[in-house]
């Protein structure tokens, strides 16, 4: 059962209907410093798992998060040309970094998926290009911001994640195509233009319009 200090609400979002996998989502609002105990049925939210990791170093939560995200990260790395064995190593390392750097996770700034994405990207750059990306990305990934002492995790992260997803789905096909090529390959926009036989300006304007729409729908996260 849910501890008394927690209030919760069940949100039937469009996203969940679309995904169809999760029948409901429990969004936890943490009041005070009570450990988060959630009804684990159905699938627990990544953010709730992450809270259990940061607050209680909960290994069971890590196991669940690993099962949820490592196969996705492996898929992402394979898309980027990593051989399966290396993709697996890096996916494991990504999730281990989540555990080790959990105190840097700031749910006001990023969803768990977004944070995991930045970690996987950096590990990919480090490994595949044999470069240290720390210098060029430290800012966005491991910004040692004051983590909230008393985190009041409202539905914001999950809602925002849903808004990003909705915004993504609402993008015109040609904008989404360019976005997908950007995130699922190692190609810069100039190479994408070349690949699609489009003028550079066209690709640039599609990315500009897509970003404007995303920001309009999602709102600034800062």
């Amino acid at each position: 059962m849910i501890a008394q200090a927690l209030s919760y609400e069940t949100v039937q979002s469009r996203r969940i209907e679309r995904q169809g996998r999760r029948s409901a989502r429990v969004i936890l609002r943490v009041v005070g410093e009570t450990a988060v105990i959630a009804e684990a049925e159905p699938v627990e939210d990544a953010c709730a798992l992450m809270l259990r990791i940061t607050q209680a170093r909960d290994k069971a939560a890590f196991r669940a998060l690993f099962q949820m995200l490592a196969p996705k990260v492996k898929a992402y790395l394979i898309r980027h040309g990593a051989p399966p064995a290396q993709a697996e190593d890096l996916a494991q390392e990504t999730l281990l970094t989540v555990w080790r750097k959990a105190e840097y996770f700031d749910p006001r700034k990023a969803s768990v998926a977004a944070w995991v994405f930045t970690i996987a990207r950096n590990l990919r750059i480090d490994a595949l290009r044999r470069e240290r990306s720390a210098m060029s990305y430290a800012l966005s990934v491991l910004e040692p911001d004051q983590a909230p002492d008393n985190p009041e995790i409202e539905s914001s992260t999950a809602e925002r994640e849903g808004r990003v997803r909705d915004a993504m789905q609402s993008l015109p096909r040609e904008q989404l195509e360019v976005i997908r090529l950007s995130f699922y390959s190692d190609k810069a926009h100039a190479e994408i233009a070349h690949e699609l036989s489009l003028p550079l300006g066209t690709v640039k304007s599609r990315l500009r319009l897509a970003l404007a729409r995303l920001r309009g729908m999602v709102g600034d996260l800062a």
């Binding site: 994405f117 930045t118 993504m168 999602v218």
Partner: peptide, 9 residues
């Protein structure tokens, strides 16, 4: 940050 959220999605 918005683009990173997109990357997560």
């Amino acid at each position: 940050q918005t683009l990173e959220a997109l990357g997560g999605a």
